[in-house]
Design a protein around this nucleic acid. Structure first.
Lengths: 316, 316
DNA sequence: ACACTTAGTGCACATATGTTCAAACATAGC
DNA sequence: GCTATGTTTGAACATATGTGCACTAAGTGT
């Protein structure tokens, strides 16, 4: 995509432009390029996130919001990113904030459990490289390649573990398996067994929160959940899901088959773990509200508008 | 300096410009301002670090350098910032990198020891606000207002403790007091005593490294060190200082009066503590080299060119 | 009340930046 | 070796941005 020389040139130009404040013409001369070329390099640098622009928008509104959510739901930690007009840009902001906050929790000799989804992926993409000692990354439920996308060809787990210098415990399996024999067979596979045994060691779990009828759920449904399960979830009042497990409007896990046949973490384990959740977008407000009520979340990263919507729900 | 409304306007403009990618004219319309006004707001936002632009310049050169320093001197952690043409800009970069790295080490229930100087101040200025529980900030040696400057009117200690929600233990005293009676009197002051007693609790110490003949030392000398001490330091082969204590080319603390009459941390204590040192600039290379040889440093934050110079010294 | 200073404004201009386009160059297929 | 196809280039143009300057309004001292 970008050869080594060009990559270095991109960095050099970015440093000269954004940090040293030179003009593109000056840079062009210095690096023996045409001025338009410099302009293009800088554009690429922004696209590839070689240049990262962030804004310190701590203000009273946001701090108040943060405090209110924290108090109302008794969540230990809440981070609020700015909501932008473009939904994808908001996702980016939330991901950036999440990556920054997550770094606070990371340390040597830890086991980090991870989930799938847009939010986790975006967070991973903004994580800074750091060589932790004895770090383990554990995939908490199955999913064969469903989250691979064109941009980065690595699974989220691979991308995180390479950034943090951690050992990855992958879970190459379908998410849900109903048939007892098939389940047994999969679970007893040494590779799978090895990963499953690491789940109880997780010091922190990184995950998104899903809403029923969301795009993410659509993917799940298309690929993994049979039609009758769908009805079961809705029929039992499911409003959202976390780590592949569905919960109702009070954040209580539903007592249904789907929740029982996940290859990976169990509902009981979820309740005992520190959950670092990234979730933004108004359509997720109900699911976020429920998971907060259920006390499932320890750290919540979201955006201003979404949290305002969540707070409004407490008023009714 | 900037009233609340203007401050909010500055943030709004920055978000629209840098995150949402709108043009200044569009923003002007949206916020009911003239275009030049928007341009000026954005300029102010950059100056006040409301907008922060950073560049991911991990490349092989820097990684190699980092590894070499780590191995050659057996320092656990080394972070290398980019050297820019302007010295102050380099200082900024180093400070940014230091703040980011420091955040990794901060946690609830900790005691952080701090020093004075340009580097620590710059690091403090880039620290992000975070409400740690039960955090203590301890000034490790005296200095009455010598480091106050025009830009921020807070002492470094105040600025750090307000950002991290920590309790500050200040040390309002001269750095050096030779006269035993005066020493005794100062040390027995309850306020001073209280701070001194917290020094041994420090989990981490944040400091710069000073070079003999440096500008920082000049300040020290002008204000606190008498002429004969100056000769004593040079006569005994002093090449640098850390936390107000002077050391020789091997990083061994000098056996001289100045080192004994500091109001604050003692040489023996320095050796047992985790030191997070921020030091850049070629003029400091010798001092950095010495402190690394003496094994005084646990984490070193510096810049590319300085560390290259330091490495060259090992060859001789 | 008056002159005098000061900080802030927007216009108009100078400068810097982004983008279109045609030509040059590279790459793959035959 | 040659055409077809796609990429990359910089000149020229269009747009966006920064700033000197003259002007205004608010504050200050006499």
């Amino acid at each position: 995509m970008l050869d080594k020389e060009e990559y270095q040139l991109t960095i050099d130009a970015s440093v000269l432009y954004y940090l040293e404040g030179k003009t593109q013409s000056q840079i062009a001369k210095e690096l023996f390029l045409s001025r338009p070329k410099v302009s293009r390099l800088l554009k690429k640098a922004r696209e590839l996130q070689i240049v990262d622009i962030s804004i310190n928008y701590q203000n009273e509104d946001i701090e108040r919001l943060q405090g209110e959510v924290r108090r109302k739901f008794n969540v230990p930690n809440v981070i609020v990113a700015k909501t932008l007009t473009d939904e994808n840009e908001t996702l980016r902001e939330v991901g950036k904030a999440a990556a920054k906050e997550l770094a606070m929790y990371l340390h040597d000799n830890m086991t980090l459990g991870i989930s799938w989804g847009k939010n986790v992926r975006m967070t991973a993409s903004y994580l800074k490289k750091h060589r932790y000692i004895n770090m383990r990354i554990v995939e908490l439920f199955g999913a064969i390649s469903y989250d691979l996308n064109e941009t980065d060809m690595l699974s989220i787990g691979r991308s995180i573990s390479s950034k943090l210098n951690g050992k990855l415990y992958p879970l190459p399996s379908p998410i849900y398996i109903n048939d007892p024999n098939a389940r047994k067979a999969i679970i007893e596979t040494p590779l799978i067994q090895n990963t499953l045994s690491k789940i109880s060691d997780c010091d922190l779990i990184l995950t998104g929160i899903g809403a029923i009828d969301s795009e993410a759920l659509q993917t799940l449904w298309d690929s993994y959940v049979e039609a009758d399960m769908k009805e079961q979830i809705i029929g039992n009042g499911g409003v959202g899901f976390i780590l592949a497990h569905f919960f109702d409007k009070n954040g209580e896990f539903l007592d249904i088959t789907v929740n029982e046949c996940v290859i990976g973490i169990q509902t009981e384990t979820i309740k005992t773990k520190k959950i670092f959740a990234i979730a933004s977008g108004k359509e997720k407000a109900r699911a976020i509200y429920a998971s907060l009520r259920g006390g499932l979340i320890n750290t919540l990263i979201s955006d201003e508008e979404t949290l305002k919507t969540v707070l409004k729900m407490t008023e009714k």
